[in-house]
Design a protein around this nucleic acid. Structure first.
Lengths: 253, 253
DNA sequence: AATCATAGTGTATTAATGACACAATTGTAA
DNA sequence: TTACAATTGTGTCATTAATACACTATGATT
Protein backbone atom coordinates (compact mmCIF):
# COMPACT_ATOMS: atom_id res chain seq x y z
CA UNK A 1 0.00 0.00 0.00
CA UNK A 2 1.22 3.44 -0.89
CA UNK A 3 1.75 6.29 1.54
CA UNK A 4 -0.44 9.33 1.10
CA UNK A 5 2.37 11.21 -0.59
CA UNK A 6 3.15 8.38 -2.98
CA UNK A 7 -0.53 7.97 -3.76
CA UNK A 8 -0.92 11.66 -4.52
CA UNK A 9 2.03 11.61 -6.89
CA UNK A 10 0.86 8.45 -8.55
CA UNK A 11 -2.65 9.77 -9.06
CA UNK A 12 -1.45 13.04 -10.51
CA UNK A 13 0.76 11.24 -12.96
CA UNK A 14 -1.86 8.67 -13.79
CA UNK A 15 -4.53 11.25 -14.50
CA UNK A 16 -2.17 13.05 -16.78
CA UNK A 17 -0.97 10.04 -18.74
CA UNK A 18 -3.49 7.24 -18.64
CA UNK A 19 -6.96 6.59 -19.95
CA UNK A 20 -9.36 6.58 -17.02
CA UNK A 21 -11.58 3.60 -16.18
CA UNK A 22 -9.40 1.16 -18.07
CA UNK A 23 -6.67 -1.18 -16.96
CA UNK A 24 -4.86 -4.20 -18.28
CA UNK A 25 -4.16 -7.38 -16.38
CA UNK A 26 -1.92 -10.13 -17.62
CA UNK A 27 -1.69 -13.81 -16.86
CA UNK A 28 1.87 -14.73 -17.69
CA UNK A 29 2.37 -18.44 -18.18
CA UNK A 30 5.72 -20.16 -17.97
CA UNK A 31 6.53 -23.85 -17.89
CA UNK A 32 9.14 -25.28 -15.56
CA UNK A 33 9.88 -28.77 -14.31
CA UNK A 34 6.65 -30.14 -15.63
CA UNK A 35 4.50 -27.53 -13.95
CA UNK A 36 2.61 -24.58 -15.39
CA UNK A 37 3.58 -21.44 -13.54
CA UNK A 38 2.11 -17.98 -13.42
CA UNK A 39 3.75 -14.68 -12.52
CA UNK A 40 2.26 -13.09 -9.42
CA UNK A 41 3.15 -9.99 -7.43
CA UNK A 42 3.12 -9.59 -3.67
CA UNK A 43 2.02 -6.35 -2.06
CA UNK A 44 4.58 -4.70 0.20
CA UNK A 45 4.29 -5.88 3.80
CA UNK A 46 1.01 -7.67 3.18
CA UNK A 47 0.11 -11.22 2.32
CA UNK A 48 -1.76 -9.92 -0.68
CA UNK A 49 -1.17 -11.03 -4.22
CA UNK A 50 -2.20 -9.84 -7.62
CA UNK A 51 -1.50 -10.28 -11.32
CA UNK A 52 0.85 -8.04 -13.27
CA UNK A 53 -1.11 -5.17 -14.73
CA UNK A 54 -1.18 -1.50 -15.43
CA UNK A 55 -2.80 1.26 -17.38
CA UNK A 56 -2.98 2.41 -20.94
CA UNK A 57 -1.37 5.64 -22.12
CA UNK A 58 -3.85 8.05 -23.57
CA UNK A 59 -2.70 7.47 -27.09
CA UNK A 60 -1.38 3.92 -26.91
CA UNK A 61 -2.74 0.84 -28.69
CA UNK A 62 -3.96 -1.79 -26.24
CA UNK A 63 -1.48 -4.44 -27.23
CA UNK A 64 1.39 -1.97 -26.98
CA UNK A 65 0.32 -1.19 -23.45
CA UNK A 66 0.24 -4.85 -22.50
CA UNK A 67 3.64 -5.26 -24.09
CA UNK A 68 5.09 -2.32 -22.21
CA UNK A 69 3.67 -3.51 -18.90
CA UNK A 70 5.06 -6.99 -19.38
CA UNK A 71 8.43 -5.79 -20.50
CA UNK A 72 8.71 -4.02 -17.16
CA UNK A 73 7.79 -7.21 -15.29
CA UNK A 74 9.81 -9.73 -17.26
CA UNK A 75 12.54 -7.84 -19.14
CA UNK A 76 11.34 -9.72 -22.20
CA UNK A 77 10.77 -8.05 -25.50
CA UNK A 78 8.57 -9.68 -28.08
CA UNK A 79 6.17 -11.51 -25.84
CA UNK A 80 3.39 -13.66 -27.23
CA UNK A 81 0.22 -11.97 -26.05
CA UNK A 82 -3.39 -12.87 -26.51
CA UNK A 83 -6.30 -10.74 -25.42
CA UNK A 84 -8.98 -12.98 -24.01
CA UNK A 85 -11.65 -11.03 -22.13
CA UNK A 86 -12.71 -7.74 -20.58
CA UNK A 87 -13.81 -7.91 -16.98
CA UNK A 88 -16.22 -5.18 -16.11
CA UNK A 89 -18.26 -5.94 -13.05
CA UNK A 90 -18.98 -2.50 -11.56
CA UNK A 91 -17.89 -3.80 -8.17
CA UNK A 92 -14.72 -5.49 -9.29
CA UNK A 93 -12.29 -2.76 -8.20
CA UNK A 94 -14.00 -2.06 -4.91
CA UNK A 95 -11.06 -3.36 -2.88
CA UNK A 96 -8.74 -0.80 -4.39
CA UNK A 97 -11.31 1.90 -3.91
CA UNK A 98 -11.76 1.07 -0.23
CA UNK A 99 -8.04 0.87 0.38
CA UNK A 100 -7.34 4.37 -0.80
CA UNK A 101 -10.63 6.22 -0.40
CA UNK A 102 -9.69 7.99 2.85
CA UNK A 103 -6.34 9.20 1.62
CA UNK A 104 -7.43 11.43 -1.23
CA UNK A 105 -10.71 13.05 -2.26
CA UNK A 106 -12.53 11.19 -4.99
CA UNK A 107 -11.94 13.87 -7.55
CA UNK A 108 -8.18 13.46 -7.61
CA UNK A 109 -8.14 9.82 -6.53
CA UNK A 110 -7.37 7.55 -9.46
CA UNK A 111 -8.69 4.55 -7.57
CA UNK A 112 -12.11 6.04 -7.01
CA UNK A 113 -12.70 5.22 -10.66
CA UNK A 114 -14.54 2.17 -11.75
CA UNK A 115 -12.13 0.12 -13.88
CA UNK A 116 -12.75 -2.22 -16.72
CA UNK A 117 -9.76 -4.45 -17.13
CA UNK A 118 -8.66 -6.04 -20.36
CA UNK A 119 -7.31 -9.53 -19.77
CA UNK A 120 -4.29 -10.76 -21.69
CA UNK A 121 -2.50 -14.01 -21.36
CA UNK A 122 1.16 -14.19 -22.18
CA UNK A 123 3.34 -17.17 -22.97
CA UNK A 124 7.02 -16.86 -22.15
CA UNK A 125 10.10 -19.00 -21.93
CA UNK A 126 10.57 -19.59 -18.23
CA UNK A 127 14.35 -19.59 -18.48
CA UNK A 128 14.50 -16.26 -20.29
CA UNK A 129 12.32 -14.41 -17.82
CA UNK A 130 13.58 -12.18 -15.01
CA UNK A 131 10.60 -11.31 -12.80
CA UNK A 132 10.58 -7.69 -11.65
CA UNK A 133 8.19 -6.19 -9.06
CA UNK A 134 6.26 -3.00 -9.83
CA UNK A 135 5.99 0.03 -7.56
CA UNK A 136 3.23 -1.49 -5.46
CA UNK A 137 4.94 -4.82 -4.98
CA UNK A 138 7.64 -6.25 -2.82
CA UNK A 139 8.25 -9.19 -5.11
CA UNK A 140 7.33 -10.70 -8.43
CA UNK A 141 7.59 -14.45 -8.64
CA UNK A 142 6.56 -17.63 -10.38
CA UNK A 143 3.96 -19.79 -8.71
CA UNK A 144 2.77 -23.17 -9.88
CA UNK A 145 -0.90 -23.64 -10.67
CA UNK A 146 -1.06 -26.09 -7.77
CA UNK A 147 0.53 -23.59 -5.40
CA UNK A 148 -1.23 -20.29 -6.08
CA UNK A 149 -1.83 -17.72 -3.35
CA UNK A 150 -5.25 -16.13 -3.03
CA UNK A 151 -5.41 -13.27 -5.46
CA UNK A 152 -6.94 -9.85 -4.80
CA UNK A 153 -9.81 -8.25 -6.68
CA UNK A 154 -11.14 -10.56 -9.38
CA UNK A 155 -7.69 -11.77 -10.31
CA UNK A 156 -8.48 -15.37 -9.45
CA UNK A 157 -11.33 -15.24 -11.94
CA UNK A 158 -9.08 -13.65 -14.53
CA UNK A 159 -6.52 -16.38 -14.05
CA UNK A 160 -9.08 -19.14 -14.30
CA UNK A 161 -10.55 -17.63 -17.44
CA UNK A 162 -7.08 -17.39 -18.96
CA UNK A 163 -6.46 -21.05 -18.25
CA UNK A 164 -9.76 -22.08 -19.76
CA UNK A 165 -8.95 -20.02 -22.83
CA UNK A 166 -5.52 -21.58 -23.08
CA UNK A 167 -7.08 -25.02 -23.08
CA UNK A 168 -9.55 -24.10 -25.79
CA UNK A 169 -6.89 -22.47 -27.92
CA UNK A 170 -4.33 -25.22 -27.60
CA UNK A 171 -4.98 -26.32 -31.16
CA UNK A 172 -5.13 -22.84 -32.67
CA UNK A 173 -2.36 -20.86 -31.01
CA UNK A 174 1.39 -21.48 -30.97
CA UNK A 175 1.29 -22.45 -27.34
CA UNK A 176 3.98 -25.09 -27.34
CA UNK A 177 6.28 -22.92 -29.36
CA UNK A 178 6.08 -20.01 -26.96
CA UNK A 179 6.27 -21.92 -23.72
CA UNK A 180 9.06 -24.36 -24.52
CA UNK A 181 12.71 -23.46 -24.79
CA UNK A 182 14.33 -23.72 -28.21
CA UNK A 183 15.19 -27.36 -27.73
CA UNK A 184 13.27 -29.85 -25.71
CA UNK A 185 12.55 -33.54 -25.47
CA UNK A 186 9.33 -35.26 -26.40
CA UNK A 187 8.53 -36.18 -22.78
CA UNK A 188 8.99 -32.53 -21.81
CA UNK A 189 6.56 -31.39 -24.48
CA UNK A 190 4.14 -34.05 -23.38
CA UNK A 191 4.30 -32.77 -19.82
CA UNK A 192 3.34 -29.34 -21.08
CA UNK A 193 0.26 -30.69 -22.78
CA UNK A 194 -0.60 -32.71 -19.72
CA UNK A 195 -0.25 -29.65 -17.52
CA UNK A 196 -2.48 -27.53 -19.72
CA UNK A 197 -5.08 -30.21 -20.24
CA UNK A 198 -4.78 -31.48 -16.70
CA UNK A 199 -4.78 -35.10 -17.76
CA UNK A 200 -2.37 -37.91 -18.52
CA UNK A 201 -1.65 -38.73 -22.13
CA UNK A 202 -0.30 -41.92 -23.62
CA UNK A 203 3.41 -41.53 -24.36
CA UNK A 204 3.42 -43.49 -27.62
CA UNK A 205 0.27 -42.01 -29.06
CA UNK A 206 1.38 -38.52 -28.11
CA UNK A 207 4.67 -38.95 -29.92
CA UNK A 208 3.08 -40.43 -32.99
CA UNK A 209 0.56 -37.65 -33.21
CA UNK A 210 3.02 -34.83 -32.59
CA UNK A 211 5.41 -36.15 -35.19
CA UNK A 212 2.48 -36.64 -37.53
CA UNK A 213 1.82 -32.91 -37.52
CA UNK A 214 5.19 -32.45 -39.15
CA UNK A 215 6.06 -29.44 -37.04
CA UNK A 216 9.03 -30.82 -35.15
CA UNK A 217 12.63 -31.17 -36.21
CA UNK A 218 14.74 -33.78 -34.47
CA UNK A 219 18.24 -32.67 -33.61
CA UNK A 220 21.16 -34.97 -34.42
CA UNK A 221 22.46 -34.87 -30.90
CA UNK A 222 20.50 -36.37 -28.04
CA UNK A 223 20.45 -34.61 -24.69
CA UNK A 224 23.37 -35.81 -22.61
CA UNK A 225 24.27 -35.81 -18.96
CA UNK A 226 20.98 -36.84 -17.39
CA UNK A 227 20.46 -40.21 -15.87
CA UNK A 228 18.79 -42.90 -17.98
CA UNK A 229 18.59 -43.22 -21.68
CA UNK A 230 19.43 -40.01 -23.52
CA UNK A 231 16.30 -38.55 -25.10
CA UNK A 232 16.29 -36.91 -28.51
CA UNK A 233 16.07 -33.16 -28.72
CA UNK A 234 13.44 -31.49 -30.85
CA UNK A 235 12.74 -27.97 -31.96
CA UNK A 236 9.75 -26.45 -33.70
CA UNK A 237 9.84 -26.02 -37.44
CA UNK A 238 8.28 -22.57 -37.26
CA UNK A 239 7.19 -22.45 -40.87
CA UNK A 240 5.35 -25.75 -40.77
CA UNK A 241 4.03 -24.93 -37.31
CA UNK A 242 2.36 -21.74 -38.41
CA UNK A 243 0.94 -23.34 -41.51
CA UNK A 244 -0.53 -26.15 -39.40
CA UNK A 245 -1.97 -23.71 -36.84
CA UNK A 246 -3.96 -21.93 -39.50
CA UNK A 247 -5.90 -25.12 -40.05
CA UNK A 248 -6.00 -26.01 -36.40
CA UNK A 249 -4.57 -29.31 -35.28
CA UNK A 250 -7.77 -31.24 -35.00
CA UNK A 251 -9.29 -31.36 -38.42
CA UNK A 252 -12.77 -30.05 -37.89
CA UNK A 253 -15.49 -29.97 -40.48
CA UNK B 1 -25.41 13.18 -38.78
CA UNK B 2 -26.83 15.18 -35.92
CA UNK B 3 -27.57 18.89 -35.96
CA UNK B 4 -25.58 21.07 -33.63
CA UNK B 5 -28.46 21.25 -31.20
CA UNK B 6 -29.00 17.51 -31.19
CA UNK B 7 -25.29 16.93 -30.77
CA UNK B 8 -25.11 19.26 -27.81
CA UNK B 9 -28.00 17.55 -26.11
CA UNK B 10 -26.59 14.13 -26.83
CA UNK B 11 -23.16 15.02 -25.49
CA UNK B 12 -24.53 16.53 -22.32
CA UNK B 13 -26.58 13.44 -21.66
CA UNK B 14 -23.76 11.11 -22.58
CA UNK B 15 -21.24 12.79 -20.31
CA UNK B 16 -23.67 12.58 -17.47
CA UNK B 17 -24.64 8.96 -17.92
CA UNK B 18 -21.97 6.99 -19.73
CA UNK B 19 -18.43 5.88 -19.05
CA UNK B 20 -16.09 7.88 -21.27
CA UNK B 21 -13.73 6.26 -23.76
CA UNK B 22 -15.70 3.06 -23.92
CA UNK B 23 -18.30 1.83 -26.34
CA UNK B 24 -19.91 -1.45 -27.28
CA UNK B 25 -20.45 -2.71 -30.80
CA UNK B 26 -22.48 -5.75 -31.67
CA UNK B 27 -22.49 -8.08 -34.61
CA UNK B 28 -25.98 -9.53 -34.66
CA UNK B 29 -26.23 -12.70 -36.67
CA UNK B 30 -29.44 -14.12 -38.01
CA UNK B 31 -30.03 -16.93 -40.46
CA UNK B 32 -32.58 -16.70 -43.22
CA UNK B 33 -33.12 -18.61 -46.44
CA UNK B 34 -29.78 -20.30 -46.25
CA UNK B 35 -27.84 -17.10 -45.79
CA UNK B 36 -26.12 -15.64 -42.75
CA UNK B 37 -27.33 -12.12 -42.18
CA UNK B 38 -26.09 -9.30 -40.01
CA UNK B 39 -27.95 -6.30 -38.63
CA UNK B 40 -26.63 -3.00 -39.96
CA UNK B 41 -27.75 0.59 -39.54
CA UNK B 42 -27.84 3.30 -42.18
CA UNK B 43 -26.98 6.88 -41.31
CA UNK B 44 -29.68 9.44 -42.04
CA UNK B 45 -29.40 10.85 -45.54
CA UNK B 46 -26.00 9.28 -46.14
CA UNK B 47 -24.86 6.06 -47.73
CA UNK B 48 -23.00 5.25 -44.56
CA UNK B 49 -23.46 2.09 -42.57
CA UNK B 50 -22.44 0.89 -39.16
CA UNK B 51 -23.02 -1.84 -36.63
CA UNK B 52 -25.45 -1.51 -33.75
CA UNK B 53 -23.67 -0.13 -30.74
CA UNK B 54 -23.82 2.21 -27.84
CA UNK B 55 -22.30 3.19 -24.55
CA UNK B 56 -22.12 1.81 -21.08
CA UNK B 57 -23.91 3.41 -18.14
CA UNK B 58 -21.53 4.49 -15.42
CA UNK B 59 -22.57 1.73 -13.12
CA UNK B 60 -23.68 -0.94 -15.55
CA UNK B 61 -22.08 -4.37 -16.12
CA UNK B 62 -20.77 -4.73 -19.66
CA UNK B 63 -23.06 -7.54 -20.65
CA UNK B 64 -26.08 -5.67 -19.33
CA UNK B 65 -25.14 -2.74 -21.52
CA UNK B 66 -24.86 -4.94 -24.60
CA UNK B 67 -28.19 -6.48 -23.71
CA UNK B 68 -29.85 -3.11 -23.31
CA UNK B 69 -28.45 -1.82 -26.59
CA UNK B 70 -29.60 -4.87 -28.48
CA UNK B 71 -33.01 -4.88 -26.94
CA UNK B 72 -33.49 -1.42 -28.37
CA UNK B 73 -32.40 -2.60 -31.83
CA UNK B 74 -34.21 -5.92 -31.98
CA UNK B 75 -37.02 -5.82 -29.40
CA UNK B 76 -35.62 -9.14 -28.23
CA UNK B 77 -35.11 -9.95 -24.61
CA UNK B 78 -32.76 -12.71 -23.61
CA UNK B 79 -30.30 -12.54 -26.45
CA UNK B 80 -27.35 -14.91 -26.69
CA UNK B 81 -24.31 -12.66 -26.43
CA UNK B 82 -20.66 -13.45 -26.56
CA UNK B 83 -17.90 -10.94 -25.96
CA UNK B 84 -15.10 -11.59 -28.40
CA UNK B 85 -12.60 -8.74 -28.54
CA UNK B 86 -11.79 -5.17 -27.61
CA UNK B 87 -10.77 -2.90 -30.45
CA UNK B 88 -8.51 -0.14 -29.31
CA UNK B 89 -6.52 1.38 -32.11
CA UNK B 90 -6.05 5.02 -31.05
CA UNK B 91 -7.14 6.12 -34.54
CA UNK B 92 -10.17 3.92 -34.81
CA UNK B 93 -12.80 6.54 -33.95
CA UNK B 94 -11.19 9.29 -36.00
CA UNK B 95 -14.08 9.44 -38.46
CA UNK B 96 -16.52 10.27 -35.71
CA UNK B 97 -14.15 12.80 -34.30
CA UNK B 98 -13.73 14.56 -37.64
CA UNK B 99 -17.43 14.56 -38.35
CA UNK B 100 -18.33 16.46 -35.20
CA UNK B 101 -15.19 18.33 -34.25
CA UNK B 102 -16.29 21.70 -35.63
CA UNK B 103 -19.68 21.65 -34.00
CA UNK B 104 -18.68 21.59 -30.35
CA UNK B 105 -15.48 22.39 -28.42
CA UNK B 106 -13.49 19.29 -27.49
CA UNK B 107 -14.19 19.67 -23.82
CA UNK B 108 -17.92 19.12 -24.12
CA UNK B 109 -17.76 17.02 -27.29
CA UNK B 110 -18.31 13.37 -26.51
CA UNK B 111 -16.85 12.34 -29.84
CA UNK B 112 -13.53 14.05 -29.25
CA UNK B 113 -12.83 11.11 -26.96
CA UNK B 114 -10.77 8.18 -28.04
CA UNK B 115 -13.00 5.12 -27.75
CA UNK B 116 -12.17 1.53 -27.04
CA UNK B 117 -15.02 -0.61 -28.21
CA UNK B 118 -15.95 -3.96 -26.77
CA UNK B 119 -17.08 -6.32 -29.49
CA UNK B 120 -19.98 -8.68 -28.88
CA UNK B 121 -21.56 -11.06 -31.27
CA UNK B 122 -25.20 -11.94 -30.85
CA UNK B 123 -27.17 -14.87 -32.20
CA UNK B 124 -30.87 -14.33 -32.73
CA UNK B 125 -33.82 -16.02 -34.34
CA UNK B 126 -34.33 -14.13 -37.57
CA UNK B 127 -38.08 -14.53 -37.46
CA UNK B 128 -38.41 -13.16 -33.95
CA UNK B 129 -36.41 -10.02 -34.61
CA UNK B 130 -37.87 -6.58 -35.36
CA UNK B 131 -35.01 -4.32 -36.44
CA UNK B 132 -35.22 -0.80 -35.02
CA UNK B 133 -33.00 2.14 -35.96
CA UNK B 134 -31.25 4.21 -33.29
CA UNK B 135 -31.22 8.01 -33.09
CA UNK B 136 -28.42 8.36 -35.64
CA UNK B 137 -29.93 5.99 -38.15
CA UNK B 138 -32.57 6.12 -40.80
CA UNK B 139 -32.95 2.35 -40.96
CA UNK B 140 -31.87 -0.86 -39.34
CA UNK B 141 -31.89 -3.88 -41.58
CA UNK B 142 -30.63 -7.38 -42.25
CA UNK B 143 -27.93 -7.79 -44.85
CA UNK B 144 -26.49 -11.07 -46.07
CA UNK B 145 -22.78 -11.69 -45.69
CA UNK B 146 -22.53 -11.70 -49.48
CA UNK B 147 -24.31 -8.38 -49.72
CA UNK B 148 -22.77 -6.16 -47.06
CA UNK B 149 -22.40 -2.41 -47.51
CA UNK B 150 -19.07 -0.81 -46.64
CA UNK B 151 -19.06 -0.15 -42.94
CA UNK B 152 -17.76 2.98 -41.23
CA UNK B 153 -14.96 3.17 -38.70
CA UNK B 154 -13.42 -0.23 -38.09
CA UNK B 155 -16.76 -1.97 -38.21
CA UNK B 156 -15.76 -4.12 -41.16
CA UNK B 157 -12.87 -5.45 -39.08
CA UNK B 158 -15.18 -6.02 -36.13
CA UNK B 159 -17.57 -7.97 -38.31
CA UNK B 160 -14.83 -10.08 -39.83
CA UNK B 161 -13.39 -10.84 -36.40
CA UNK B 162 -16.84 -11.83 -35.16
CA UNK B 163 -17.24 -14.23 -38.06
CA UNK B 164 -13.83 -15.78 -37.47
CA UNK B 165 -14.73 -16.21 -33.82
CA UNK B 166 -18.04 -17.78 -34.71
CA UNK B 167 -16.26 -20.32 -36.87
CA UNK B 168 -13.80 -21.19 -34.14
CA UNK B 169 -16.51 -21.47 -31.52
CA UNK B 170 -18.91 -23.52 -33.59
CA UNK B 171 -18.11 -26.60 -31.55
CA UNK B 172 -18.16 -24.90 -28.17
CA UNK B 173 -21.08 -22.50 -28.26
CA UNK B 174 -24.79 -23.16 -28.76
CA UNK B 175 -24.69 -21.57 -32.17
CA UNK B 176 -27.19 -23.77 -33.93
CA UNK B 177 -29.59 -23.53 -31.04
CA UNK B 178 -29.63 -19.75 -31.02
CA UNK B 179 -29.76 -19.16 -34.75
CA UNK B 180 -32.36 -21.72 -35.76
CA UNK B 181 -36.06 -21.44 -35.08
CA UNK B 182 -37.57 -23.94 -32.67
CA UNK B 183 -38.22 -26.47 -35.40
CA UNK B 184 -36.15 -26.94 -38.49
CA UNK B 185 -35.19 -29.57 -41.01
CA UNK B 186 -31.85 -31.28 -41.32
CA UNK B 187 -31.06 -29.61 -44.65
CA UNK B 188 -31.78 -26.23 -43.07
CA UNK B 189 -29.40 -26.92 -40.23
CA UNK B 190 -26.82 -28.09 -42.71
CA UNK B 191 -27.14 -24.84 -44.62
CA UNK B 192 -26.39 -22.95 -41.43
CA UNK B 193 -23.21 -24.91 -40.91
CA UNK B 194 -22.26 -24.42 -44.51
CA UNK B 195 -22.86 -20.69 -44.27
CA UNK B 196 -20.73 -20.35 -41.15
CA UNK B 197 -17.94 -22.57 -42.41
CA UNK B 198 -18.23 -21.28 -45.94
CA UNK B 199 -17.95 -24.74 -47.45
CA UNK B 200 -20.17 -27.51 -48.72
CA UNK B 201 -20.77 -30.49 -46.49
CA UNK B 202 -21.87 -33.97 -47.47
CA UNK B 203 -25.56 -34.37 -46.75
CA UNK B 204 -25.39 -37.96 -45.56
CA UNK B 205 -22.32 -37.56 -43.39
CA UNK B 206 -23.68 -34.37 -41.87
CA UNK B 207 -26.87 -36.08 -40.87
CA UNK B 208 -25.08 -39.10 -39.44
CA UNK B 209 -22.80 -36.92 -37.39
CA UNK B 210 -25.47 -34.52 -36.12
CA UNK B 211 -27.71 -37.37 -35.05
CA UNK B 212 -24.70 -39.05 -33.49
CA UNK B 213 -24.31 -36.15 -31.07
CA UNK B 214 -27.67 -37.06 -29.61
CA UNK B 215 -28.79 -33.46 -29.33
CA UNK B 216 -31.70 -33.50 -31.75
CA UNK B 217 -35.24 -34.67 -31.28
CA UNK B 218 -37.18 -35.67 -34.36
CA UNK B 219 -40.77 -34.52 -34.46
CA UNK B 220 -43.50 -36.97 -35.43
CA UNK B 221 -44.86 -34.69 -38.11
CA UNK B 222 -42.83 -33.88 -41.18
CA UNK B 223 -42.96 -30.38 -42.62
CA UNK B 224 -45.80 -30.13 -45.09
CA UNK B 225 -46.70 -27.86 -47.97
CA UNK B 226 -43.36 -27.40 -49.65
CA UNK B 227 -42.54 -28.89 -52.99
CA UNK B 228 -40.69 -32.20 -53.06
CA UNK B 229 -40.45 -34.83 -50.42
CA UNK B 230 -41.55 -33.62 -46.98
CA UNK B 231 -38.53 -33.40 -44.67
CA UNK B 232 -38.63 -34.31 -40.99
CA UNK B 233 -38.66 -31.56 -38.42
CA UNK B 234 -36.11 -31.52 -35.62
CA UNK B 235 -35.64 -29.49 -32.49
CA UNK B 236 -32.73 -29.26 -30.09
CA UNK B 237 -32.77 -31.33 -26.95
CA UNK B 238 -31.45 -28.49 -24.83
CA UNK B 239 -30.31 -30.66 -21.96
CA UNK B 240 -28.23 -32.97 -24.10
CA UNK B 241 -27.03 -30.04 -26.19
CA UNK B 242 -25.57 -28.20 -23.25
CA UNK B 243 -23.97 -31.32 -21.86
CA UNK B 244 -22.36 -32.02 -25.24
CA UNK B 245 -21.15 -28.44 -25.59
CA UNK B 246 -19.22 -28.66 -22.36
CA UNK B 247 -17.07 -31.31 -23.94
CA UNK B 248 -16.97 -29.64 -27.33
CA UNK B 249 -18.21 -31.54 -30.34
CA UNK B 250 -14.91 -32.64 -31.75
CA UNK B 251 -13.36 -34.84 -29.14
CA UNK B 252 -9.92 -33.37 -28.74
CA UNK B 253 -7.25 -34.78 -26.51
C1' DA C 1 26.81 -57.65 -13.88
C1' DA C 2 22.32 -56.75 -12.18
C1' DT C 3 18.94 -53.27 -11.46
C1' DC C 4 16.18 -49.21 -12.05
C1' DA C 5 14.29 -45.53 -14.36
C1' DT C 6 13.43 -43.60 -18.51
C1' DA C 7 13.30 -43.37 -23.69
C1' DG C 8 12.26 -45.33 -28.21
C1' DT C 9 9.41 -48.12 -31.28
C1' DG C 10 5.37 -51.33 -33.40
C1' DT C 11 0.98 -53.63 -33.86
C1' DA C 12 -3.74 -55.00 -33.43
C1' DT C 13 -8.43 -53.32 -32.41
C1' DT C 14 -11.88 -50.07 -32.60
C1' DA C 15 -14.05 -45.74 -33.86
C1' DA C 16 -14.69 -41.84 -36.94
C1' DT C 17 -14.62 -39.92 -41.42
C1' DG C 18 -15.17 -39.56 -46.34
C1' DA C 19 -16.89 -41.04 -50.65
C1' DC C 20 -20.50 -42.71 -52.96
C1' DA C 21 -25.64 -44.72 -55.08
C1' DC C 22 -30.13 -45.73 -54.83
C1' DA C 23 -34.99 -45.40 -53.34
C1' DA C 24 -38.98 -42.39 -51.84
C1' DT C 25 -41.88 -38.30 -52.11
C1' DT C 26 -44.07 -34.32 -54.09
C1' DG C 27 -45.06 -30.56 -57.32
C1' DT C 28 -44.79 -29.30 -62.24
C1' DA C 29 -44.84 -29.74 -67.13
C1' DA C 30 -45.98 -32.51 -71.01
C1' DT D 1 -52.07 -39.33 -66.03
C1' DT D 2 -47.64 -39.75 -66.63
C1' DA D 3 -42.91 -38.51 -66.95
C1' DC D 4 -39.74 -35.48 -64.93
C1' DA D 5 -37.13 -32.60 -61.79
C1' DA D 6 -35.97 -31.48 -57.32
C1' DT D 7 -35.40 -32.77 -52.91
C1' DT D 8 -35.17 -35.95 -48.84
C1' DG D 9 -33.97 -40.27 -46.51
C1' DT D 10 -30.97 -44.12 -45.87
C1' DG D 11 -26.90 -47.83 -46.26
C1' DT D 12 -22.26 -49.58 -47.28
C1' DC D 13 -17.53 -49.83 -48.16
C1' DA D 14 -12.77 -48.02 -47.91
C1' DT D 15 -9.75 -45.10 -45.61
C1' DT D 16 -8.00 -42.77 -41.80
C1' DA D 17 -7.46 -41.64 -37.00
C1' DA D 18 -7.57 -42.93 -32.18
C1' DT D 19 -6.84 -46.11 -28.53
C1' DA D 20 -4.77 -49.70 -25.93
C1' DC D 21 -1.02 -52.13 -25.01
C1' DA D 22 4.37 -54.68 -24.62
C1' DC D 23 8.75 -55.08 -25.69
C1' DT D 24 13.62 -53.38 -26.45
C1' DA D 25 17.41 -49.92 -25.62
C1' DT D 26 20.28 -46.92 -22.92
C1' DG D 27 22.83 -45.01 -19.15
C1' DA D 28 23.55 -44.26 -14.27
C1' DT D 29 23.72 -46.66 -9.76
C1' DT D 30 24.78 -50.58 -6.82
Amino acid sequence: MLTKKELKEFCAEARENYLPHISIDCVVFGFHEGIMKVLVLKVQNEDEWYLPGGFMLKNEPIEKAADRILKERTTLDKIFLQQFQVFGDPERSKEHFDMYKDMLPAKENWFSNRFLTIGYYALVDFFETNPNPDQFAESCQWRGLDDLPDLKLDHALILKTALDTLRLQLNYQPIGYNLMPKEFTMPELQKLYEAILDKKLDRRNFQRRMLGFGILTRSDEPRKGGAHKAPYLYSFDLKNYEAALKEGFKGGW
